[in-house]
């Protein structure tokens, strides 16, 4: 059996890479739960509520503070009302949709949310070399 030439191998690798990317992207797009994979946070079905949540919440703090919560709807209601009192810019007519969005995506039954680490000096150096 003859070995493939270097050019053929490169083309083959390119095809494999494309397939791998497509497969992985498709898998992510199919995710319905935000945290079923520790690195997957896709929520393409969230629509306008997601955009409104981003606009209202992320001025003051990062989203990780939200996505780590696992709260019931009554608890999310208290949080949204507290944050509106504390200056989160939410159109009152969007309040209920936001509560529904948080309750649906960050409720008690969702698996725990993975957290990253701060880079150590060694990881910083490795990244710097790239």
């Amino acid at each position: 059996m003859s070995r493939p030439s270097k050019t053929r191998l490169t083309k083959l690798n390119a095809i494999i890479l494309t397939l791998a990317v497509l497969t992985a992207t498709a898998a992510l797009a199919g995710e319905s739960s935000p945290n079923s994979n520790s690195n997957s946070n896709d929520q393409s079905s969230a629509g306008p509520a997601k955009e409104k949540a981003e606009a209202a919440c992320l001025t003051c703090h990062e989203a990780r503070i939200i996505v780590q919560q696992r709260l019931s709807k009554p608890a999310w209601t208290k949080e949204v009302d507290k944050m509106m009192k504390w200056g989160a810019e939410v159109d009152p007519k969007d309040r209920d949709a936001l509560i529904d969005y948080f309750s649906a995506n960050f409720g008690p039954d969702q698996p725990a949310c993975a957290a990253p680490r701060t880079a150590t000096q060694s990881t910083t150096q490795t990244k710097g070399k790239k």
Partner: peptide, 24 residues
């Protein structure tokens, strides 16, 4: 390649949060 693709996929975030492994 799969790991790279997963990392790229994770850059499309829920609520625009970064899902990087290390935060400096």
């Amino acid at each position: 390649a799969s790991a790279a693709a997963l990392a790229a996929g994770a850059a499309h975030p829920l609520l625009s949060w970064a899902a990087e492994d290390f935060v400096p």
